[in-house]
Amino acid sequence: MTNRQPRIEGIAAPLPRANVDTDQIIPIIHLISVTRDGMGKGLFSDWRYGPGGAEKPDFVLNRAPWRNATLLVAGANFGCGSSREHAVWALREFGIRAVIASGFASIFYDNCFKNGLAPVIIAEAATVTLQGIAERHPAEPVIVDLESGRVRAAEGFDVPFTMDPSRRRDLIEGLDEIGASLAKSEEINAFHAADRLRRPWVYSHKPS
């Protein structure tokens, strides 16, 4: 990610379900791959496709205009279950750049930031309101303003979302987390040097 992304704006698909687990976001069969690419086709595949691969016309991402959605508005505890980062890769490859929900599972939440996907937390009642707005005004964009920390939509919808400012900045600027940690190599090495004296038993096994 090299382009600045101060806000995320686009069609928002309503997905009024709680506890959407990562097995639903991407069924495990799509994880058989040594690359990050190609996960988009597996996104919600059990909900998007019937036996034989035919689209299920009722599923929101198979309906216009939501098949071009940039945002998803879901219920509580989105992304629970398996730690598979493939769920985030699948959402990103499909074109989703923000998921708005009243809560996220911890591992999924962290995985989002590492891939430029914004996990946006608003109150549960606000998710229900926003899902209604997305149904009534499907073509109107929903805006996640990462700089001001607010979600805006049609009908004057304008609410703050919960996200630490440093994480909002990471999403805006893009993030090289490993590079940032490696810049602390001296601290890491100092920790290990001291720890080998303090807890030698941690390092006493023979490498095999």
Partner: peptide, 17 residues
């Protein structure tokens, strides 16, 4: 438990965030 990016981070740094 961690995702794949964090696996890469730990491989490189032996630390987690």
């Amino acid at each position: 438990g961690i995702g794949t990016s964090e696996v890469e981070h730990i491989l490189a740094t032996q630390c987690a965030i």
